[in-house]
Design a protein around this nucleic acid. Sequence first.
DNA 1: GCTGATGTGGTTCGATCGTATCGAAACGTG
DNA 2: CACGTTTCGATACGATCGAACCACATCAGC
Lengths: 200, 200
Amino acid sequence: MPRKVDHEERRHRIAEAVWRLAARRGLEDVTLRQVAAEAGVPARQLQYYFGTRDHLLLGALEILNADAERRAAERMADLGEEPSPRALVRAVLFELLPLDDERRETQIVHAAYFIRFLTDPAMATPVRDSPHALEELVASLLRHGQALGQVHADLDARAEAAFLVAGAQGLQPPVLLGQYTAQHATDLIDRQIDRVFPGT
Amino acid sequence: MPRKVDHEERRHRIAEAVWRLAARRGLEDVTLRQVAAEAGVPARQLQYYFGTRDHLLLGALEILNADAERRAAERMADLGEEPSPRALVRAVLFELLPLDDERRETQIVHAAYFIRFLTDPAMATPVRDSPHALEELVASLLRHGQALGQVHADLDARAEAAFLVAGAQGLQPPVLLGQYTAQHATDLIDRQIDRVFPGT
DNA sequence: GCTGATGTGGTTCGATCGTATCGAAACGTG
DNA sequence: CACGTTTCGATACGATCGAACCACATCAGC
């Protein structure tokens, strides 16, 4: 078989063009010709590397999610050797805010895809599991905090984790729309974290 | 001038078709011909009553928001003569969840329009003010609750209101996607309300 | 050196898009 | 009744869409 390296590189390059267009004007403007122009490749390549337009959209989303997940894992690793539950919860929730260009683009693209998630089951699978996983992760961190005496023992970790995640997710739109500053959003989250971790 | 009555009726009828299509498959499928077919009117009427496609999208959004606001006001009025701050906060937050078909459709359509809000300032104006208004409303209700001794006096009403609204908004996607039941979402909100209004 | 699989570019096709246009029906007003 | 405005149906136009098609490169294995 021929060089596999280019394959991934090109797919990534094309996927980036899809993200830019989707984030700028929505999926309507993600046409094969526009993507080709944005990526600087002939339109024929999109057909070859992704097939139909639906497969292009799905493939670009998968690559986006993989990149975002990798970056999130890196930021978690940057917290140091033995990060406190509190710091981890904070980092997880901040992952849901558009605090840099990459997270911003990821979240806008997800918003552009959202309607598809509702009807197209194939599109939904990459996203359908992640929020549940985030909630579980935060819940386990809260329970860890309870074991350490940093979180009130009578607090329902599961429910509190779900609402914290929802709150962070709900802060996304106002920040993207420029109604809230990123600073304001992080302050609001920090305030909730202070409430949940009173002893730190 | 000829009958004005039909004018509004027809615009509403056409707008409903736009919502249905937008909610089902996103703005990409809101083509003039599809809308005409869905509304059961000749395509030429869309041109006459709304003009260009952009004006159609904008007009349909305005009609949707007006309807949603009217229904929300009705539900608030149904709370009775002198509703408690707690009941009002609950009702306001529940307005952000897809608890019936109308709210569900409204929120899905808003999701479909979201990308437009980010770039098209004309589209954004109907929505740009509402969340801020909701937050202020909840904050004033919390302050009212503080005056009545139902809410801890040292609680930051503004920040808590903002996070409650964000939390409700953040519960929207998982409910729409079927990850959370509506029951679960309302439970989570009720739990937060119990925390904020401990004395009721 | 031939062959077949793999990759690439350019072009074409039928369908559908948004919009403009033209003429006639419908209707209030004089 | 006649007239001008409003409403509306049908059609046409240029542009653009997704996808198919075709002619070449390129290169590994025989």
